[in-house]
Design a protein around this nucleic acid. Structure first.
Length: 457
RNA sequence: GGCGGGGUGGCAGAGUGGUUAUGCAGCGGCCUGCAAAGCCGUGUACAGCGGUUCGAUUCCGCUCCCUGCCUCCA
């Protein structure tokens, strides 16, 4: 029986997963900055860690899943100002939209969703500790900065050498910093901006300190898995390590995981290219019943450390694959019951998932199992297919409802008329009705015994 | 300039020193009034050039190409 191995960004190797506390796992994922809808790239990252959490639980671990909400940030203030909307109204509205998107993507709700604005106290405390250890300083402009060169391990996650960093090449260097690489922990209040009182004066936290403070509060100084998008390795996660380990003197994270990017067609998705697709606009273009799981499959069928491409064609492709799986479950109603992990399919599936969440191989097993279900019509094997799907958040909808999708037209009368025509051997009329329904996006399937089933095209 | 990830059959996407990945699409067959679904069958894929080896897509070197990060960024 295999055991879980995870690729650790810190060591760039797959390592056996050994939780800090046996039987338990703490997972922290950098969540959204709530100034706008999430895009499909964000959706990929969140889907990846949803998969991770589900699989950890499937292996029997008791997981505490924390995903933060960044609700104080320059982008939020800019957006609120541009819209003439109070900051809190903007963030509340965006959080609500985010939760809708997550629900449609079938993401499990995190156990804790700490919001930055409710953890200002812990952040200030953390900065004070850093200051007391000589790792933070108050600059002339009132800001508080982290002194990067005073933290010996800086760069160990992203494998960067301080002297190789091109500090300030793309951003104007703040003159108040002692070193261009230093990053802000506390920003002094400016007129018209939200501010909180602190020993450093009125102000607001920097982005990086949020995650250090909230993760420590929810999971402790050391915890098991910290996840995020590939681009967060530097500087965000590097800075988190500097803050958290600098303050606690303890190892911060045992396993760092980073989800690769989703590209739009041939290009990187970026605002400057104007090719950003929000999750909700993609979902709005899909069937209301099938779309969420369809997009989820597109996002998860590639390995999480490989870049994937988003195109309409690939989305259709994922929808077709999903339809095949659900068709098998419709034709052979699955038996209820726990997964029999001694079954060869289950064992192969588990081995794949344990091998650093190798979803491509796991889905290959599911597809082979689907064929076996179709051949044998075994409710037990159908139950296994559904049960394995459950461990990664797939195949849990009612098959017939899934296959019918969001079709709302009443087809019963036409199907009845066609069956009468068939009985009368009026095939011209029967085929005409079928073509009419086909034009409406409905496919008929004649079954033995004169039964006609239908599904969305 | 520094550091990193890749190039697999029409498309997507794993993996392996020698044996079918898998899916979607296509083609042929069975089934069907005809279809659909399903089942069966069907693809001399591993960027190029050298090297190691009995044997390399898989290891090593070089070349070409694509691509990410270097304080907005999932």
């Amino acid at each position: 029986m295999s055991t879980l191995a995870i690729h650790n960004t810190l060591t760039r190797r797959k390592e056996p997963f050994v939780p800090l506390v046996p039987g338990r796992a703490g997972v922290y994922v950098c969540g959204p900055t709530v100034y706008d809808y999430i895009h499909v790239g964000n959706a990929r990252t969140f889907s990846v860690f949803d998969l991770v959490v589900r699989w950890l639980r499937a292996t029997g671990l008791e997981v505490t899943y924390v995903r933060n909400v960044t609700d104080v940030d320059d982008k939020i203030m800019d957006r609120a100002r541009a819209r003439g909307e109070p900051i809190e109204a903007l963030t509340e509205r965006t959080v609500a939209a985010f939760e809708e998107d997550c629900a449609r993507l079938l993401l499990v709700k995190p156990d804790r969703e700490p919001r930055a604005t409710r953890y200002i106290g812990p952040m200030v405390e953390l900065i004070s500790v850093l200051e007391s250890k000589g790792l933070a300083y108050r600059a002339a402009n009132g800001d508080v900065y982290f002194s990067v060169r005073d933290f010996p391990g800086y760069g160990k996650l992203s494998r960067r050498n301080l002297d190789d960093l091109r500090a300030g090449e793309r951003v104007a260097i703040e003159a108040a910093k002692h070193d261009p690489l230093d990053f802000v922990l506390w920003k002094a209040a400016k007129p018209g901006e939200p501010a909180w009182p602190s020993v450093f004066g009125d102000g607001r936290p920097g982005w990086h300190i949020e995650c250090s403070a909230m993760s420590a509060r929810e999971l402790g100084a050391t915890f098991d898995i910290h996840g995020g998008g590939w681009d967060l390795q530097f500087p965000h996660h590097e800075n988190e390590i500097a803050q958290s380990e600098g303050a606690s003197g303890q190892p911060f994270v045992r396993y760092w995981m980073h989800a690769a990017f989703l590209n739009m067609g041939e290009e990187k998705m970026s605002k400057s290219l104007g090719n950003v697709a929000t999750a909700r606009e993609v979902l709005a273009s899909l069937d209301p019943v099938q779309g969420g799981e369809q997009l989820r499959l597109l996002l998860l069928r590639g390995h999480y450390r490989s870049e994937i491409t988003y195109t309409r064609e690939l989305l259709d492709d994922a929808g077709n694959a999903l339809r095949g799986l659900y068709t098998a479950l419709r034709e052979t109603p699955p038996a209820d019951g726990p997964v029999d992990w001694t079954s060869p399919w289950a064992a192969r599936f588990r081995d794949a998932m344990n091998d650093d969440f190798d979803t491509p191989v796991a889905f290959a097993v599911l597809h082979e199992l689907r064929a076996e279900v179709n051949r044998t019509r075994s409710p037990a094997l159908a139950g296994l297919l559904k049960g394995l799907g459950a461990t990664i958040g797939f195949l849990q909808q009612e098959p017939d409802a899934f296959l019918k999708g969001g079709v709302t037209v009443d087809v019963a009368a036409l199907i009845a008329e066609r069956q009468a025509a068939k009985r009368a051997k009026d095939y011209a009329r029967a085929d005409a009705i079928r073509q009419e329904l086909d034009a409406a996006g409905i496919v008929l399937e004649d079954k033995p015994g004169g039964v006609t089933e239908w599904r969305k095209k």
